[in-house]
Nucleic acid binder design. Structure first.
Lengths: 343, 343
DNA sequence: TTGTAAGCGTTATCAG
DNA sequence: CTGATAACGCTTACAA
């Protein structure tokens, strides 16, 4: 790169010391208006932009937010990134990605990334946010982090929706629409939300006095193929459910696919509900009824909260922040009803 | 963070100078085996990881690859990230995201990010890779970059598929399957591939002696809604095409959606073809015939090539590299035929 | 083969 | 209000 202007160049041009430039750049008080203008002008002319690296080294912060994820769905990942980036942009932070590796020791790999990249904070997404050992290491290392859609205790602060109630609410919708024989496809065990969504389903069924048929409860991997597999099992026999609630949209897509192939009309022969409101849900015909999580907003709020953790007034021990911030932020979900569950 | 070990700690523990530690870390020659082992051991024990910030500041490089994008589809974005990250991981580079803003001056915003983040290289994706003014600024700033799926000249090196041939090939498939009245949905004008794909379509039609009916050529935005809109226009009248080739899958999904709603059977009443092989394509029933771009591989190769540009043997002027590397790397595409175009 | 010393571009400390 | 000057953790000459 054509050697960019440094703080020295600006200082020289404005006829002040570098410290003063620094003050202006960081909006510190105690700078005369006139001086500030002078500096600002020099900055403008030289097109000066502070170097993140130098800032990081000197200030002990990287101005980088790390996003850790593993195996998330495309749309979840992208939407979350959108939200995080929205928050980052305002405060001039960068976003660095840290996908989990397939290595034997996932946690070690992740921690290595943390130590060398030294992000100022980390956004943890499921299932990493549900990984106690990782969280422990993060806390040990005194890294500020926040998780998204995590719900365990001792797992640090989190931004999420009420998974149980969301699932209960969708199940209730199916029940209200007249369906009684309802199947459910759970998510994988390492996602905390898998159990929660199932619990919500059970609650609705129980309170309606409907039985939960264990033949109609399958475990999937949150992907299309496992949705197909689960649906095939549930639908092959003569004794089959009239509705299937898949705990995410990708699996629901699998169910719909099986229905089509089997000549079953959705929703006449089989109602299908999903969870997440991925773009997929609107693309199908009929559209897929699903639960919309405000992922973008979750990402943004999580990031803002995270930044508050390390930008807030300096407390004695930054560790305190991580530990005390056990509180979680619950955002509203939304039931999106389309054709796949009736009208 | 619990103040991590620095190069000094390691040097002290191993009883050597920091320069020696640096040598070991960077795999430089001229270090006695024994010394190396000593240092390695200390590194291990202290769990030392070099600070990216310090390395960047001192070495004039950030060990960061930047990915610039604008308005790309979820799966394209994620797959590309996957490929880039795969290449980054090996060389211990980080990936920082830089989405284009909605600001008046997109280019200025992007360049600001470049100057402050100072990535060692940039991956440019469409439509940014087709933006001459941005590319010019990048070259001016002497930033090493490579574009993905860009095809213009003067736009630097690129990794891509043969868009024209891919589109021609899919169109030919439709023709071979007996379709004659074929509609086409183009992409937006700021994507270079939009014209190329259309050209491929035209080539196939011409060489088959079939007319390209201008009523059946629409322009979309590469998203579902514009696919719906285009399909509605083409299918409303009595004189409608028997096949529609949408230049990406999202738009093709829109076409299929309209077909369903209109009671048209796919592919009996209307064949549909797409481009990209997004997950969506397999989710539909019947499956969507489409052109598969090896996006992950493209990302990986582009990144490796990019790294070669600035890690290669130091040439006099690094600018030379950017300018000389006008060559592009063409990867094979694949025709994925599913039910939407016949058997 | 190894070590010393001088930066890299900021921030932070502490005098003026 | 402002400015020297010392860090920050590392790389890169240049010595030894």
């Amino acid at each position: 790169m054509a050697t960019a202007a440094t703080i020295n160049d600006v200082a020289k041009m404005a006829g002040v010391s570098i410290k003063t430039v620094s003050r202006v750049v960081n909006r510190e008080p105690n700078v005369r208006e006139k001086t500030r203008d002078l500096v600002l002008q020099a900055i403008q002319q030289l097109n000066y932009k502070p170097s993140l690296a130098a800032r990081g080294l000197a200030g002990g912060r990287s101005f980088l937010i790390g996003m850790m994820y593993d195996n998330a769905s495309d749309s979840f990942l992208v939407d979350l990134q959108r939200g995080i980036l929205r928050a980052c942009r305002e405060r001039h932070y960068g976003l660095a990605l840290c996908p989990a590796s397939r290595a034997e020791d996932r946690t070690a790999d992740l921690m290595e990334w943390v130590v060398s990249t030294q992000p100022d904070g980390i956004i943890l997404t499921p299932p990493l946010s549900d990984d106690q050992s990782l969280v422990d290491r993060l806390i040990d290392a005194n890294v500020t982090f926040i998780s998204v859609s995590s719900t365990g205790t001792g797992l640090g602060p989190s931004v999420l929706i009420d998974e149980v109630d969301a699932a209960r609410s969708m199940a209730q919708h199916l029940i209200d629409a007249g369906y009684q024989d309802i199947g459910f496809i759970k998510g994988p065990a390492d996602h905390a939300c898998s159990d929660l969504r199932f619990r919500g389903f059970e609650m609705a069924m129980n309170s309606a006095g409907l039985p939960v048929n264990s033949d109609w409860v399958k475990v999937g991997e949150f992907d299309f193929d496992s949705g197909v597999a689960a649906a095939e099992q549930m639908l092959k026999g003569p004794n089959r459910p009239t509705a299937i609630f898949a705990s995410n949209d990708d699996m629901a897509a699998g169910v719909i696919n099986v229905a089509y192939r089997s000549g079953l009309n959705v929703p006449k022969d089989l109602a299908v509900a999903g969870f997440d409101d991925t773009p997929l849900a609107q693309h199908f015909w009929p559209g897929l009824s699903t639960v919309k999580q405000p992922i973008i907003q979750i990402g943004q709020q999580a990031t803002e909260y995270l930044m508050g953790l390390f930008e807030g007034p300096p407390s004695g021990d930054s560790n305190e922040k991580t530990k005390s911030g056990e509180q979680s932020m619950v955002l509203p979900y939304e039931l999106v009803l389309r054709g796949s569950t009736g009208a």
